[in-house]
Nucleic acid binder design. Structure first.
Lengths: 223, 223
DNA sequence: GTCAACCATATTGTATACAATTATTGCGTT
DNA sequence: AACGCAATAATTGTATACAATATGGTTGAC
Protein backbone atom coordinates (compact mmCIF):
# COMPACT_ATOMS: atom_id res chain seq x y z
CA UNK A 1 0.00 0.00 0.00
CA UNK A 2 1.42 3.28 -1.13
CA UNK A 3 0.95 5.82 1.61
CA UNK A 4 3.01 8.40 -0.22
CA UNK A 5 1.00 11.42 -1.22
CA UNK A 6 3.56 12.15 -3.93
CA UNK A 7 2.92 8.83 -5.70
CA UNK A 8 -0.81 9.37 -5.78
CA UNK A 9 -0.33 12.85 -7.19
CA UNK A 10 2.07 11.53 -9.81
CA UNK A 11 -0.46 8.99 -11.05
CA UNK A 12 -3.17 11.60 -11.03
CA UNK A 13 -1.14 14.10 -13.05
CA UNK A 14 0.01 11.32 -15.39
CA UNK A 15 -3.60 10.52 -16.13
CA UNK A 16 -4.43 14.16 -16.70
CA UNK A 17 -1.54 14.51 -19.13
CA UNK A 18 -2.11 11.40 -21.24
CA UNK A 19 -5.83 12.04 -21.49
CA UNK A 20 -5.18 15.56 -22.67
CA UNK A 21 -6.86 17.22 -19.70
CA UNK A 22 -3.65 19.16 -19.39
CA UNK A 23 -2.81 20.82 -22.68
CA UNK A 24 0.54 20.72 -24.36
CA UNK A 25 2.96 23.44 -23.26
CA UNK A 26 0.84 24.24 -20.23
CA UNK A 27 2.74 25.31 -17.16
CA UNK A 28 1.98 23.39 -13.99
CA UNK A 29 1.56 25.89 -11.17
CA UNK A 30 2.86 24.45 -7.92
CA UNK A 31 0.75 26.57 -5.61
CA UNK A 32 -2.43 26.18 -7.65
CA UNK A 33 -2.06 22.40 -7.89
CA UNK A 34 -1.13 22.05 -4.22
CA UNK A 35 -4.38 23.77 -3.29
CA UNK A 36 -6.28 21.55 -5.70
CA UNK A 37 -4.77 18.39 -4.25
CA UNK A 38 -5.05 19.73 -0.72
CA UNK A 39 -1.39 19.34 0.12
CA UNK A 40 1.80 21.35 0.24
CA UNK A 41 4.24 21.95 -2.61
CA UNK A 42 6.66 19.29 -1.41
CA UNK A 43 4.87 16.13 -2.63
CA UNK A 44 3.95 17.96 -5.83
CA UNK A 45 7.57 18.70 -6.59
CA UNK A 46 8.45 15.05 -6.02
CA UNK A 47 5.73 14.06 -8.47
CA UNK A 48 7.17 16.54 -10.98
CA UNK A 49 10.58 14.89 -10.73
CA UNK A 50 9.08 11.50 -11.55
CA UNK A 51 7.04 12.86 -14.45
CA UNK A 52 10.07 14.63 -15.86
CA UNK A 53 12.04 11.38 -15.67
CA UNK A 54 9.48 9.58 -17.80
CA UNK A 55 9.37 12.48 -20.25
CA UNK A 56 5.79 13.61 -19.71
CA UNK A 57 6.81 17.05 -18.52
CA UNK A 58 9.91 19.18 -18.88
CA UNK A 59 11.45 20.74 -15.81
CA UNK A 60 13.20 24.02 -16.57
CA UNK A 61 15.37 25.30 -13.70
CA UNK A 62 13.85 28.29 -11.93
CA UNK A 63 11.13 28.43 -14.54
CA UNK A 64 8.74 25.62 -13.78
CA UNK A 65 7.19 22.42 -15.14
CA UNK A 66 5.74 22.31 -18.66
CA UNK A 67 3.56 19.60 -20.17
CA UNK A 68 5.21 18.00 -23.17
CA UNK A 69 2.98 15.96 -25.41
CA UNK A 70 4.84 14.09 -28.12
CA UNK A 71 4.59 15.55 -31.57
CA UNK A 72 3.44 13.34 -34.43
CA UNK A 73 7.09 12.91 -35.39
CA UNK A 74 8.07 11.86 -31.88
CA UNK A 75 5.16 9.47 -31.76
CA UNK A 76 6.22 7.80 -34.98
CA UNK A 77 9.77 7.59 -33.64
CA UNK A 78 8.54 5.93 -30.46
CA UNK A 79 6.51 3.38 -32.41
CA UNK A 80 9.55 2.70 -34.56
CA UNK A 81 11.56 1.84 -31.45
CA UNK A 82 8.68 -0.09 -29.91
CA UNK A 83 8.42 -2.27 -33.02
CA UNK A 84 12.10 -3.10 -32.83
CA UNK A 85 12.04 -3.79 -29.09
CA UNK A 86 9.11 -6.15 -29.51
CA UNK A 87 10.76 -7.84 -32.46
CA UNK A 88 13.81 -8.41 -30.29
CA UNK A 89 11.67 -9.75 -27.45
CA UNK A 90 10.14 -12.16 -29.95
CA UNK A 91 13.48 -13.28 -31.37
CA UNK A 92 14.76 -14.06 -27.88
CA UNK A 93 11.48 -15.61 -26.80
CA UNK A 94 11.58 -18.00 -29.76
CA UNK A 95 14.60 -19.58 -28.10
CA UNK A 96 13.77 -19.10 -24.43
CA UNK A 97 9.99 -19.38 -24.14
CA UNK A 98 8.65 -21.95 -21.68
CA UNK A 99 5.60 -24.17 -22.08
CA UNK A 100 3.88 -22.20 -19.32
CA UNK A 101 4.49 -19.00 -21.29
CA UNK A 102 3.05 -20.54 -24.44
CA UNK A 103 -0.01 -21.75 -22.57
CA UNK A 104 -0.59 -18.30 -21.07
CA UNK A 105 -0.19 -16.67 -24.48
CA UNK A 106 -2.65 -19.16 -25.93
CA UNK A 107 -5.12 -18.17 -23.23
CA UNK A 108 -4.96 -14.51 -24.19
CA UNK A 109 -5.55 -15.39 -27.83
CA UNK A 110 -8.67 -17.34 -26.88
CA UNK A 111 -9.85 -14.47 -24.70
CA UNK A 112 -9.20 -12.07 -27.58
CA UNK A 113 -11.27 -14.24 -29.90
CA UNK A 114 -14.19 -14.02 -27.49
CA UNK A 115 -13.73 -10.28 -27.17
CA UNK A 116 -13.85 -9.89 -30.96
CA UNK A 117 -16.99 -12.02 -31.14
CA UNK A 118 -18.62 -9.92 -28.41
CA UNK A 119 -17.22 -6.77 -30.04
CA UNK A 120 -15.93 -5.84 -26.57
CA UNK A 121 -13.17 -3.31 -27.21
CA UNK A 122 -12.26 -2.87 -23.55
CA UNK A 123 -11.88 -6.58 -23.03
CA UNK A 124 -9.80 -6.91 -26.20
CA UNK A 125 -7.62 -4.04 -25.07
CA UNK A 126 -7.04 -5.72 -21.73
CA UNK A 127 -6.15 -9.11 -23.22
CA UNK A 128 -3.97 -7.46 -25.81
CA UNK A 129 -1.97 -5.92 -22.95
CA UNK A 130 -1.58 -9.34 -21.36
CA UNK A 131 -0.35 -10.85 -24.62
CA UNK A 132 2.36 -8.27 -25.07
CA UNK A 133 3.51 -8.26 -21.46
CA UNK A 134 3.73 -12.02 -21.47
CA UNK A 135 5.87 -11.77 -24.56
CA UNK A 136 8.20 -9.28 -22.90
CA UNK A 137 8.91 -11.55 -19.97
CA UNK A 138 9.16 -14.56 -22.26
CA UNK A 139 12.24 -12.88 -23.74
CA UNK A 140 14.12 -14.06 -20.68
CA UNK A 141 15.75 -10.64 -20.41
CA UNK A 142 14.17 -8.78 -17.51
CA UNK A 143 15.89 -5.51 -18.37
CA UNK A 144 14.52 -5.68 -21.89
CA UNK A 145 11.10 -6.60 -20.53
CA UNK A 146 11.20 -3.57 -18.27
CA UNK A 147 12.23 -1.20 -21.04
CA UNK A 148 9.57 -2.58 -23.36
CA UNK A 149 6.93 -2.22 -20.65
CA UNK A 150 7.89 1.39 -20.02
CA UNK A 151 7.63 2.38 -23.67
CA UNK A 152 4.47 0.33 -24.04
CA UNK A 153 2.92 2.28 -21.16
CA UNK A 154 3.92 5.56 -22.71
CA UNK A 155 2.27 4.65 -26.00
CA UNK A 156 -0.89 3.49 -24.27
CA UNK A 157 -3.16 6.43 -25.18
CA UNK A 158 -2.21 6.22 -28.87
CA UNK A 159 -2.73 2.48 -29.02
CA UNK A 160 -6.23 2.92 -27.66
CA UNK A 161 -6.99 5.30 -30.49
CA UNK A 162 -5.62 2.85 -33.05
CA UNK A 163 -7.69 -0.10 -31.87
CA UNK A 164 -10.86 1.87 -32.51
CA UNK A 165 -10.28 1.84 -36.26
CA UNK A 166 -12.82 -0.45 -37.96
CA UNK A 167 -11.60 -3.99 -38.54
CA UNK A 168 -8.44 -3.40 -36.56
CA UNK A 169 -9.45 -5.85 -33.84
CA UNK A 170 -9.79 -8.76 -36.24
CA UNK A 171 -6.52 -7.90 -37.96
CA UNK A 172 -4.72 -7.60 -34.63
CA UNK A 173 -6.05 -10.95 -33.49
CA UNK A 174 -4.95 -12.64 -36.70
CA UNK A 175 -1.46 -11.23 -36.20
CA UNK A 176 -1.39 -12.53 -32.65
CA UNK A 177 -2.16 -15.98 -34.00
CA UNK A 178 0.67 -15.78 -36.54
CA UNK A 179 3.09 -14.63 -33.83
CA UNK A 180 2.11 -17.39 -31.42
CA UNK A 181 2.30 -19.98 -34.18
CA UNK A 182 5.83 -18.97 -35.15
CA UNK A 183 6.78 -18.87 -31.48
CA UNK A 184 5.60 -22.44 -30.94
CA UNK A 185 7.65 -23.57 -33.91
CA UNK A 186 10.67 -21.69 -32.62
CA UNK A 187 11.12 -19.76 -35.85
CA UNK A 188 12.92 -16.74 -34.39
CA UNK A 189 13.04 -14.53 -37.49
CA UNK A 190 9.41 -15.18 -38.35
CA UNK A 191 8.38 -14.15 -34.85
CA UNK A 192 10.53 -11.03 -35.06
CA UNK A 193 9.19 -10.00 -38.44
CA UNK A 194 5.58 -10.68 -37.49
CA UNK A 195 5.93 -8.61 -34.32
CA UNK A 196 7.68 -5.77 -36.07
CA UNK A 197 4.88 -5.54 -38.61
CA UNK A 198 2.29 -5.93 -35.87
CA UNK A 199 3.58 -2.94 -33.92
CA UNK A 200 5.04 -0.74 -36.63
CA UNK A 201 3.15 2.23 -37.91
CA UNK A 202 3.26 1.86 -41.65
CA UNK A 203 1.07 2.05 -44.72
CA UNK A 204 -2.57 2.65 -43.89
CA UNK A 205 -1.96 2.49 -40.17
CA UNK A 206 0.05 5.68 -40.40
CA UNK A 207 -2.87 7.55 -41.88
CA UNK A 208 -5.20 6.18 -39.22
CA UNK A 209 -2.81 7.22 -36.51
CA UNK A 210 -2.30 10.66 -37.98
CA UNK A 211 -6.03 11.22 -38.27
CA UNK A 212 -6.72 10.19 -34.68
CA UNK A 213 -3.77 12.23 -33.49
CA UNK A 214 -5.04 15.37 -35.17
CA UNK A 215 -8.51 14.73 -33.79
CA UNK A 216 -7.26 14.23 -30.23
CA UNK A 217 -6.64 17.02 -27.71
CA UNK A 218 -3.00 15.97 -27.54
CA UNK A 219 -2.22 17.64 -30.83
CA UNK A 220 -2.82 21.16 -29.45
CA UNK A 221 -0.03 23.50 -30.35
CA UNK A 222 2.44 24.53 -27.70
CA UNK A 223 1.77 27.75 -25.84
CA UNK B 1 24.81 27.06 -15.72
CA UNK B 2 22.99 24.80 -13.31
CA UNK B 3 22.47 26.64 -10.06
CA UNK B 4 20.43 23.81 -8.62
CA UNK B 5 22.09 22.24 -5.63
CA UNK B 6 20.07 19.08 -6.27
CA UNK B 7 21.60 18.57 -9.73
CA UNK B 8 25.13 18.91 -8.44
CA UNK B 9 24.41 16.41 -5.69
CA UNK B 10 22.85 14.01 -8.16
CA UNK B 11 25.94 14.03 -10.35
CA UNK B 12 28.15 13.66 -7.33
CA UNK B 13 26.23 10.67 -6.00
CA UNK B 14 26.03 9.18 -9.49
CA UNK B 15 29.81 9.30 -9.68
CA UNK B 16 30.17 7.74 -6.25
CA UNK B 17 27.84 4.92 -7.21
CA UNK B 18 29.31 4.00 -10.60
CA UNK B 19 32.87 4.13 -9.29
CA UNK B 20 31.94 1.82 -6.46
CA UNK B 21 32.68 4.36 -3.72
CA UNK B 22 29.22 3.53 -2.50
CA UNK B 23 28.88 -0.21 -2.05
CA UNK B 24 25.99 -2.25 -3.32
CA UNK B 25 23.01 -2.46 -0.97
CA UNK B 26 24.31 0.45 1.07
CA UNK B 27 21.66 2.67 2.54
CA UNK B 28 22.01 6.38 1.80
CA UNK B 29 21.43 8.30 5.01
CA UNK B 30 19.71 11.60 4.29
CA UNK B 31 20.94 13.44 7.37
CA UNK B 32 24.50 12.13 7.11
CA UNK B 33 24.75 13.05 3.41
CA UNK B 34 23.14 16.44 3.92
CA UNK B 35 25.82 17.28 6.48
CA UNK B 36 28.50 16.00 4.14
CA UNK B 37 27.22 18.13 1.24
CA UNK B 38 26.53 21.07 3.54
CA UNK B 39 22.88 21.39 2.65
CA UNK B 40 19.47 20.35 3.87
CA UNK B 41 17.63 17.12 3.16
CA UNK B 42 15.46 18.72 0.47
CA UNK B 43 17.92 18.83 -2.45
CA UNK B 44 19.21 15.41 -1.42
CA UNK B 45 15.76 13.91 -1.69
CA UNK B 46 15.35 15.45 -5.15
CA UNK B 47 18.64 13.89 -6.20
CA UNK B 48 17.41 10.55 -4.85
CA UNK B 49 14.33 10.77 -7.06
CA UNK B 50 16.44 11.30 -10.15
CA UNK B 51 18.84 8.47 -9.27
CA UNK B 52 15.92 6.12 -8.63
CA UNK B 53 14.47 7.01 -12.03
CA UNK B 54 17.68 5.97 -13.79
CA UNK B 55 17.84 2.80 -11.73
CA UNK B 56 21.02 3.51 -9.76
CA UNK B 57 19.25 3.38 -6.43
CA UNK B 58 16.03 1.89 -5.17
CA UNK B 59 13.66 4.04 -3.15
CA UNK B 60 11.64 2.01 -0.67
CA UNK B 61 8.75 3.96 0.91
CA UNK B 62 9.41 4.90 4.51
CA UNK B 63 12.59 2.84 4.46
CA UNK B 64 15.11 4.84 2.52
CA UNK B 65 17.38 4.80 -0.53
CA UNK B 66 19.54 1.77 -1.30
CA UNK B 67 22.37 1.54 -3.81
CA UNK B 68 21.62 -1.01 -6.51
CA UNK B 69 24.58 -2.10 -8.58
CA UNK B 70 23.62 -4.34 -11.48
CA UNK B 71 24.36 -7.99 -11.01
CA UNK B 72 26.43 -9.78 -13.65
CA UNK B 73 23.18 -11.11 -15.10
CA UNK B 74 21.64 -7.65 -15.31
CA UNK B 75 24.80 -6.31 -16.91
CA UNK B 76 24.72 -8.98 -19.60
CA UNK B 77 21.04 -8.21 -20.15
CA UNK B 78 21.80 -4.51 -20.57
CA UNK B 79 24.56 -5.22 -23.07
CA UNK B 80 22.19 -7.51 -24.95
CA UNK B 81 19.73 -4.65 -25.32
CA UNK B 82 22.48 -2.13 -26.09
CA UNK B 83 23.73 -4.32 -28.95
CA UNK B 84 20.28 -4.46 -30.45
CA UNK B 85 19.65 -0.74 -30.06
CA UNK B 86 22.93 0.08 -31.76
CA UNK B 87 22.24 -2.42 -34.51
CA UNK B 88 18.92 -0.70 -35.10
CA UNK B 89 20.59 2.72 -35.12
CA UNK B 90 22.96 1.38 -37.74
CA UNK B 91 20.23 -0.13 -39.88
CA UNK B 92 18.37 3.17 -39.94
CA UNK B 93 21.54 5.18 -40.39
CA UNK B 94 22.45 3.14 -43.47
CA UNK B 95 19.42 4.71 -45.16
CA UNK B 96 19.37 8.12 -43.52
CA UNK B 97 22.99 9.07 -42.89
CA UNK B 98 24.15 12.39 -44.34
CA UNK B 99 27.51 13.19 -45.87
CA UNK B 100 28.28 15.44 -42.91
CA UNK B 101 27.62 12.51 -40.56
CA UNK B 102 29.90 10.27 -42.57
CA UNK B 103 32.65 12.88 -42.55
CA UNK B 104 32.35 13.31 -38.77
CA UNK B 105 32.44 9.54 -38.27
CA UNK B 106 35.51 9.33 -40.50
CA UNK B 107 37.18 11.95 -38.29
CA UNK B 108 36.66 9.90 -35.16
CA UNK B 109 38.14 6.83 -36.86
CA UNK B 110 41.25 8.85 -37.77
CA UNK B 111 41.48 10.18 -34.22
CA UNK B 112 41.08 6.65 -32.90
CA UNK B 113 43.92 5.48 -35.14
CA UNK B 114 46.19 8.11 -33.67
CA UNK B 115 45.09 7.18 -30.16
CA UNK B 116 45.96 3.54 -30.81
CA UNK B 117 49.39 4.52 -32.19
CA UNK B 118 50.02 6.67 -29.12
CA UNK B 119 48.52 3.95 -26.91
CA UNK B 120 46.40 6.69 -25.36
CA UNK B 121 43.49 4.88 -23.76
CA UNK B 122 41.75 8.03 -22.52
CA UNK B 123 41.85 9.61 -25.95
CA UNK B 124 40.57 6.41 -27.55
CA UNK B 125 37.79 6.23 -25.01
CA UNK B 126 36.77 9.79 -25.79
CA UNK B 127 36.76 9.30 -29.56
CA UNK B 128 34.94 6.02 -29.20
CA UNK B 129 32.18 7.89 -27.38
CA UNK B 130 31.98 10.38 -30.22
CA UNK B 131 31.75 7.61 -32.81
CA UNK B 132 28.84 5.96 -31.08
CA UNK B 133 26.93 9.14 -30.33
CA UNK B 134 27.30 10.28 -33.92
CA UNK B 135 25.86 6.97 -34.98
CA UNK B 136 22.89 7.37 -32.66
CA UNK B 137 21.91 10.71 -34.14
CA UNK B 138 22.65 9.47 -37.67
CA UNK B 139 19.74 7.06 -37.14
CA UNK B 140 17.45 10.03 -37.81
CA UNK B 141 15.29 8.96 -34.88
CA UNK B 142 15.90 11.33 -31.99
CA UNK B 143 13.91 9.24 -29.54
CA UNK B 144 16.02 6.20 -30.37
CA UNK B 145 19.17 8.31 -30.13
CA UNK B 146 18.13 9.46 -26.68
CA UNK B 147 17.35 5.96 -25.45
CA UNK B 148 20.62 4.65 -26.82
CA UNK B 149 22.53 7.48 -25.15
CA UNK B 150 20.90 6.78 -21.81
CA UNK B 151 21.77 3.10 -21.82
CA UNK B 152 25.23 3.90 -23.18
CA UNK B 153 25.80 6.22 -20.22
CA UNK B 154 24.65 3.59 -17.79
CA UNK B 155 27.10 1.05 -19.20
CA UNK B 156 29.95 3.53 -19.14
CA UNK B 157 31.86 2.11 -16.14
CA UNK B 158 31.79 -1.40 -17.57
CA UNK B 159 32.89 -0.29 -21.02
CA UNK B 160 35.91 1.40 -19.48
CA UNK B 161 36.87 -1.89 -17.88
CA UNK B 162 36.48 -3.71 -21.19
CA UNK B 163 38.68 -1.37 -23.18
CA UNK B 164 41.57 -2.08 -20.84
CA UNK B 165 41.84 -5.67 -22.02
CA UNK B 166 45.01 -6.13 -24.09
CA UNK B 167 44.51 -5.77 -27.83
CA UNK B 168 40.91 -4.60 -27.41
CA UNK B 169 41.71 -1.14 -28.74
CA UNK B 170 43.00 -2.43 -32.07
CA UNK B 171 40.08 -4.82 -32.41
CA UNK B 172 37.59 -2.09 -31.60
CA UNK B 173 39.15 0.24 -34.15
CA UNK B 174 39.05 -2.42 -36.85
CA UNK B 175 35.37 -2.94 -36.13
CA UNK B 176 34.72 0.79 -36.39
CA UNK B 177 36.29 0.72 -39.85
CA UNK B 178 34.06 -2.16 -40.95
CA UNK B 179 30.98 -0.38 -39.64
CA UNK B 180 31.84 2.89 -41.34
CA UNK B 181 32.65 1.09 -44.57
CA UNK B 182 29.30 -0.70 -44.66
CA UNK B 183 27.60 2.56 -43.76
CA UNK B 184 29.15 4.37 -46.71
CA UNK B 185 28.00 1.60 -49.00
CA UNK B 186 24.52 1.77 -47.52
CA UNK B 187 24.45 -1.93 -46.69
CA UNK B 188 21.94 -1.80 -43.85
CA UNK B 189 22.13 -5.40 -42.68
CA UNK B 190 25.94 -5.42 -42.73
CA UNK B 191 26.01 -2.31 -40.58
CA UNK B 192 23.51 -3.81 -38.17
CA UNK B 193 25.36 -7.10 -37.86
CA UNK B 194 28.74 -5.42 -37.45
CA UNK B 195 27.39 -3.15 -34.72
CA UNK B 196 25.64 -5.97 -32.91
CA UNK B 197 28.86 -7.96 -32.81
CA UNK B 198 30.82 -4.85 -31.85
CA UNK B 199 28.70 -4.18 -28.79
CA UNK B 200 27.52 -7.63 -27.78
CA UNK B 201 29.20 -9.45 -24.95
CA UNK B 202 29.92 -12.86 -26.38
CA UNK B 203 32.69 -15.45 -26.57
CA UNK B 204 35.94 -14.26 -25.02
CA UNK B 205 34.53 -10.85 -24.26
CA UNK B 206 32.17 -12.38 -21.77
CA UNK B 207 35.04 -13.90 -19.81
CA UNK B 208 36.90 -10.59 -19.88
CA UNK B 209 33.85 -8.76 -18.63
CA UNK B 210 33.16 -11.31 -15.93
CA UNK B 211 36.73 -11.16 -14.70
CA UNK B 212 36.78 -7.37 -14.54
CA UNK B 213 33.37 -7.37 -12.91
CA UNK B 214 34.48 -9.75 -10.18
CA UNK B 215 37.62 -7.70 -9.65
CA UNK B 216 35.74 -4.44 -9.40
CA UNK B 217 34.20 -3.05 -6.21
CA UNK B 218 30.80 -3.17 -7.90
CA UNK B 219 30.50 -6.89 -7.41
CA UNK B 220 30.28 -6.63 -3.61
CA UNK B 221 27.42 -8.61 -2.23
CA UNK B 222 24.31 -6.87 -1.11
CA UNK B 223 23.98 -6.01 2.59
C1' DG C 1 13.57 -20.38 26.74
C1' DT C 2 10.99 -18.68 22.95
C1' DC C 3 7.63 -16.04 20.77
C1' DA C 4 4.62 -12.17 20.48
C1' DA C 5 3.08 -7.70 21.46
C1' DC C 6 4.07 -3.13 22.68
C1' DC C 7 6.61 0.93 23.36
C1' DA C 8 10.65 3.92 22.29
C1' DT C 9 13.59 5.58 18.86
C1' DA C 10 15.04 6.76 14.51
C1' DT C 11 14.01 7.86 9.87
C1' DT C 12 11.12 9.08 6.19
C1' DG C 13 7.19 12.05 4.41
C1' DT C 14 4.96 16.56 4.53
C1' DA C 15 4.14 21.36 5.75
C1' DT C 16 5.70 25.86 6.20
C1' DA C 17 9.01 29.59 6.24
C1' DC C 18 12.76 31.80 3.98
C1' DA C 19 16.20 32.78 0.15
C1' DA C 20 17.42 33.16 -4.57
C1' DT C 21 16.32 33.67 -9.24
C1' DT C 22 13.42 35.04 -12.98
C1' DA C 23 9.65 37.54 -15.17
C1' DT C 24 7.10 41.75 -15.46
C1' DT C 25 6.00 46.31 -15.35
C1' DG C 26 6.93 51.01 -15.23
C1' DC C 27 9.96 54.72 -15.91
C1' DG C 28 13.47 57.22 -18.07
C1' DT C 29 16.31 58.08 -22.00
C1' DT C 30 17.32 58.34 -26.84
C1' DA D 1 7.45 55.99 -29.91
C1' DA D 2 10.75 52.41 -29.05
C1' DC D 3 14.33 50.52 -26.52
C1' DG D 4 16.83 49.60 -22.29
C1' DC D 5 17.31 49.58 -17.47
C1' DA D 6 15.71 49.11 -12.85
C1' DA D 7 12.65 48.02 -9.24
C1' DT D 8 9.04 45.06 -7.89
C1' DA D 9 6.33 41.03 -7.86
C1' DA D 10 5.87 36.26 -8.52
C1' DT D 11 7.78 31.73 -8.58
C1' DT D 12 11.17 28.31 -7.87
C1' DG D 13 14.85 26.32 -4.77
C1' DT D 14 16.28 25.38 -0.04
C1' DA D 15 16.06 25.11 4.99
C1' DT D 16 13.76 23.86 9.00
C1' DA D 17 9.98 22.20 11.78
C1' DC D 18 6.48 18.83 12.44
C1' DA D 19 3.84 14.40 11.56
C1' DA D 20 3.60 9.64 10.25
C1' DT D 21 5.62 5.26 9.66
C1' DA D 22 8.96 1.53 10.26
C1' DT D 23 12.51 -0.67 13.02
C1' DG D 24 14.53 -2.58 17.16
C1' DG D 25 14.59 -3.62 21.78
C1' DT D 26 12.30 -4.79 25.90
C1' DT D 27 8.93 -6.91 28.57
C1' DG D 28 5.54 -10.07 29.44
C1' DA D 29 3.12 -14.39 28.81
C1' DC D 30 3.06 -19.14 27.49
Amino acid sequence: MTSRRADIIRESLEQMIVTGALANGERLDETALSERFGCSRTPLREAFQALAASGLIELLPHRGAFVRHPSLTQMVEMFEVMAELEAFCGRLAARRVTNADLAALQETVVACEEAVRANDHDCYYHENERFHHLLYSASGNSFLADQASRLHARLKPFRRLQLRVRGRLEQSLAEHRVILDALEKGHAEEVATALRDHVAVQGGKFNDLMASYNASPLSAQRA
